[in-house]
Design a protein around this nucleic acid. Structure first.
Lengths: 156, 156
DNA sequence: GTAACTAACTTGTATTTTGCAAGTTAGTTA
DNA sequence: TAACTAACTTGCAAAATACAAGTTAGTTAC
């Protein structure tokens, strides 16, 4: 009942509006967070923490694939499962997600992240960002969260 | 019919989700764009380009004020008008908006911004970001857009 | 080989949010 | 003082979201 050439809607020539037309909702960036930061690959693993509805998830994944941010491929051995990966265009959203993470960490009074880490974020920001990017790239972000950010694994 | 302590909804401990709970929609960041980048101050000037509905605008402004990102004050001389300004917390969203702008400029094939500027954005990113921040701070962003980005004033 | 199981959706429907048009109101201008 | 205006508010149709349940191709256990 939708999914046109994606060129249908275009509110203005503003680059921010352009982005928001694609990911300006409560869910899209959380799905991308899981794909980009946590290397999740399967339908049933996305935005589980926030309990996304499966119909919304399916719609967003289709939209992201359509926009060229992610790819969907059938698992070679387990053919009833699909594997989602970010494309290069998808990876280009990392800086936005990083800034949003930093902002949230600095303004969420209830964050479970350690005060020390948040302090480092303001005093040695570039250093910390570098660490996060490295951890994400090497696939050790989960460990980094526990060790550097003081998070409990149970908190996901 | 709403507007509770804003602590009502909280999907997860994720800092990105924390941000999205506040500005995860198609309009909030456009209003902040106008306040932060274009120094707009009045109700009827926000997101005009994208023709926001007045009820949505009113609701978002109330939410932003409630969250401490903007302030609302009555104009001293023209008492039928209100003036909105960003707080320090509001200004802290600039990095996110900047990243979103950069992303949009680099991926919107129909952007009216000059190819030269977009090229500079990839080759001398930090330099360009510095220029933008300076232009915004000095209140000359409109001129900067015309001169450096090759935009027509009519495009707003 | 077949019954139970499961990942990945799809469908139906109630609820919420958004969009659009029109109305209101305090304060301003002619 | 009558016309005008900024800043909303209200009413309602349309779209998006949430929640529960159903479907289906493919996998696993026996």
């Amino acid at each position: 009942m939708m999914r046109l050439a994606s060129s249908t809607k275009r509110r203005s020539a503003c680059p921010i509006a352009f982005g928001l037309d694609l990911f300006g909702d409560k869910w899209t960036l959380l799905i991308l967070r899981d794909i980009l930061f946590f290397k999740k690959t399967r339908f049933s693993d996305f935005a589980v923490r926030e309990s996304i509805s499966t119909n919304i998830l399916a719609e967003r994944l289709a939209r992201l694939e359509n926009a060229g941010l992610i790819t969907k491929q059938q698992d070679k051995t387990l053919k009833n499962q699909n594997i989602y990966h970010a494309t290069e265009k998808g990876y280009s959203l990392v800086p936005i997600l990083l800034e949003m993470s930093i902002w949230g960490l600095q303004h969420d009074e209830q964050t479970p992240v350690s005060k020390e880490f948040i302090h480092r974020l303001t005093t040695e920001r570039e250093q910390v960002v570098g660490e996060i990017v490295s951890a994400v790239q090497s696939g050790t972000f989960d460990e980094y969260r526990v060790q550097a950010m003081g998070l409990d694994l149970k908190l996901l």
